[in-house]
Amino acid sequence: MKCPYCDKKMIKGFLMSSRDITFATDNPDCQYCEAYHCSSCKKIMIDYGNK
Rank of each mutant, 00 (worst) to 15 (best):
I46V: 13
I46D: 01
D20W: 14
D26C: 03
P28R: 00
Y36R: 02
K51H: 09
G13F: 04
P4S: 01
Y36D: 00
C6M: 08
S18Y: 15
K12S: 14
Q31C: 09
I44D: 04
N50K: 10
C30V: 10
Q31Y: 15
Y5D: 01
I11Q: 02
Y5V: 13
K51Q: 11
C38I: 11
T22W: 10
A35L: 02
P4M: 04
Y32E: 00
R19W: 14
R19D: 14
R19E: 12
D7T: 07
K2N: 13
D26V: 13
Q31K: 12
Y32H: 10
C30A: 13
Y32D: 02
M16E: 11
T22Q: 09
C6I: 01
C41D: 00
P4I: 06
M10N: 03
C41T: 11
D47R: 04
K2M: 06
P4G: 02
H37V: 11
S17D: 14
S18W: 15
C30R: 13
S17C: 09
H37S: 08
D29Y: 15
R19Y: 15
Y48R: 12
K43Y: 13
Y32Q: 04
I44H: 07
C41M: 07
T22G: 04
D20R: 15
M16R: 09
I21N: 10
I44K: 01
D7A: 05
S40H: 15
K12E: 09
C3H: 00
I21W: 07
F14Q: 00
M10A: 02
C33A: 06
S17W: 08
C38H: 05
M10H: 01
K42A: 13
D47G: 03
K43N: 03
Q31R: 13
C30N: 09
D26W: 14
I11Y: 03
P4E: 01
M1Y: 13
Q31D: 05
C33S: 07
P4R: 00
I44Y: 08
M16S: 09
D47T: 03
I11N: 04
M16I: 15
F14N: 02
C41V: 02
A24I: 02
S40A: 12
T22A: 14
Y32M: 05
A24E: 10
S17F: 13
M10Y: 06
C41W: 02
C41S: 12
C33E: 02
I44G: 00
M45W: 13
G13M: 02
M16H: 09
S40C: 08
K51W: 04
C33R: 04
G13T: 06
C33D: 07
